[in-house]
Amino acid sequence: MTTDAAKKKSNTKIMVQLGLLAASMIAFVFVGLVPMYNWICEVTGIGGRTTGPTTELITEIDESRDIRVQFMASAERDMPFEFRALDTRVQVHPGQQHTIHYRVTNTSDETRAVQAVPSLSPYRVTEHFHKIECFCFEETVLAPGESLDMPMIFYVDPRLPEDVSSIAMSYSLFNLPGYAQADIKEPN
């Protein structure tokens, strides 16, 4: 009988250990896999997700190279917004700063909050595309009929891979999640 009791006790012990393993796997998803994904995206540029403005400045301009940068805009389905790039194409030398503009217009009759999400292609240029000023991931509140020209200042890193001669950049406009759109008051 004593061996049975011992066996039962060790059964419980293994059960608890395995239960902890399962629980730690759940935790691992949140504190391990998700940050790991974001980190990998940042390093490899998967998804073309660029980060916010940079502070690093490069003064040297590589005039031997001409890079074509194209700009696109899209708005989420059913959004009462006009969103477009005012400059659709620029030629730049690596290291050279450029300013381009996007225009967003609220065509509805209520105040709305939106946010633009950037994406770059091909992905491997992501780490070489620096924004000095941008409106990405910024909450923008627009009154009915209000129109706003948003500038983006950028430069391309001279370390851009040799075989890249054109870059495409896209901004997607989304309704800001978590906002009941009707509840938004006047912009600050």
């Binding site: 998804g47 073309g48 696109m72 989420e76 994406s119 770059l120 292609s121 495409a168 989304f174």
Partner: peptide
């Protein structure tokens, strides 16, 4: 074709 991302 993924929302928010451009593929080439």
């Amino acid at each position: 074709a993924v929302p928010g991302i451009i593929n080439e």
